[in-house]
C-alpha cells in the first residue's frame, strides 16, 4: 500500500523533472541578467501575472469567451464531419461525387477563409466559429474516412453474412471500428483549433485570450508579461483537453488492449 503510493509519487516526479528544470533555469537566467535588455520576465513573475489576472477576473472572462468559441466550432465540426466521413468512406457513390470537391477545398489555406467569412457573415462570432469549425473539420473528416476504409473486411463480411441492413452495418460495425482512429483525428483537430483560435482572436477580436495577447504585446511594460502568461495558460488548458479526450477514448475503447497517452 505505502510502496504503491511511493511508486506513484516517484513516477510523477520523474514526469515533472524536465519541466521543473526548465522553469528553474529560466528563473536563474533572467535573475542573473544574462538576457538583459530583452524584456523577459522571470518564470515566477509570469505565474504571478497569471494570478493577478485571475484575481482581477479578466482571465476567467476571456477564457470563457475563447473556450466558448472552441467548443462551438469543435462541436459543429464533430457533428458534421463524422457522419460525412462515414458516408464518404463507406458509400462509393458519395466518394465519387464529393471527393474532388473536398480535396480541392482542403487545399485552401485555412486562414484564407477568414476574410471570406467576414465578407459574408461580418466580423462577429459566426465567422470566428466557422473558421474554427473548418480547422477541426479536416482532421476529423480525413481520419473518419480513412478509418472507415480500413475496417477489417472480414468483420464486414461476417456482419453481412448475418444479414444486417446497410444502416445497421454503419451503426453497429463501421462506426465502432472507426472510433479509435476518429479519436486520433479529434486530438489533432484540437491542436489545429487552438492555432486558428489565436489567429482569429489576434486578427479580429477585442475579447478572448488571443486578443489579450495582442494587447499585451503592444504595451511595453507589465502588460507585455501577459504574452508569456497566456502562453503558459494555454499549455495547461491544452493538457487538460488532451487528458479529457484520452479519458473519453479509454472509456469508449476499453475493448482495446491499450490506449497510449498522446
Amino acid at each position: 500500500m505505502g510502496s504503491a503510493i511511493l511508486k506513484r509519487l516517484t513516477t510523477l516526479l520523474q514526469r515533472l523533472t524536465a519541466i521543473i528544470i526548465i522553469l528553474l533555469a529560466w528563473e536563474i537566467v533572467v535573475r542573473a541578467g544574462i538576457l538583459y535588455p530583452a524584456p523577459i520576465p522571470t518564470a515566477s513573475r509570469v505565474f504571478g501575472v497569471l494570478v493577478e489576472m485571475a484575481l482581477a477576473g479578466t482571465l476567467q472572462k476571456h477564457t470563457v469567451i475563447s473556450l466558448g468559441r472552441v467548443f462551438s466550432g469543435y462541436t459543429l465540426a464533430v457533428v458534421i464531419a463524422i457522419p460525412l466521413g462515414l458516408a464518404v468512406g463507406w458509400f462509393k457513390t458519395f466518394e465519387r461525387y464529393l471527393d474532388p470537391l473536398l480535396q480541392t477545398l482542403r487545399q485552401v489555406p485555412l486562414l484564407a477563409w477568414f476574410p471570406v467569412f467576414i465578407l459574408i457573415f461580418g466580423i462577429g462570432e459566426l465567422s470566428k466559429i466557422l473558421l474554427i469549425m473548418l480547422a477541426a473539420m479536416w482532421w476529423i473528416l480525413l481520419s473518419t474516412i480513412s478509418a472507415v476504409q480500413n475496417v477489417d473486411p472480414f468483420i464486414v463480411k461476417t456482419a453481412r453474412s448475418m444479414g444486417v441492413s446497410e444502416w445497421d452495418m454503419l451503426r453497429k460495425v463501421v462506426l465502432p471500428s472507426a472510433v479509435p482512429s476518429i479519436f486520433t483525428g479529434l486530438r489533432y483537430a484540437y491542436t489545429e483549433v487552438i492555432l486558428v483560435l489565436f489567429a482569429v482572436e489576434m486578427l479580429g477580436a477585442n475579447d478572448g485570450l488571443g486578443s489579450v495577447m495582442i494587447y499585451g504585446s503592444c504595451h511595453p511594460g507589465p502588460e507585455l508579461f501577459m504574452v508569456y502568461s497566456i502562453s503558459i495558460f494555454m499549455a495547461i488548458i491544452g493538457l487538460i483537453a488532451n487528458y479529457m479526450l484520452v479519458g473519453l477514448e479509454r472509456r469508449l475503447c476499453k475493448w482495446k488492449e491499450e490506449t497510449g497517452m498522446g
Binding site: 472480414f154 468483420i155 463480411k157 461476417t158 453481412r160 453474412s161 444479414g163 471500428s177 475503447c253 475493448w255
Partner: peptide
C-alpha cells in the same frame, strides 16, 4: 444474398473487437 440459414466462420475469427 446472405441469410440467417447459413452461418460463416472464417480463419481470421473476425470477432467484433468492441463487443464482449
Amino acid at each position: 444474398g446472405p441469410g440467417l440459414d447459413r452461418g460463416i466462420v472464417f480463419q481470421q475469427y473476425a470477432l467484433f473487437p468492441w463487443r464482449t
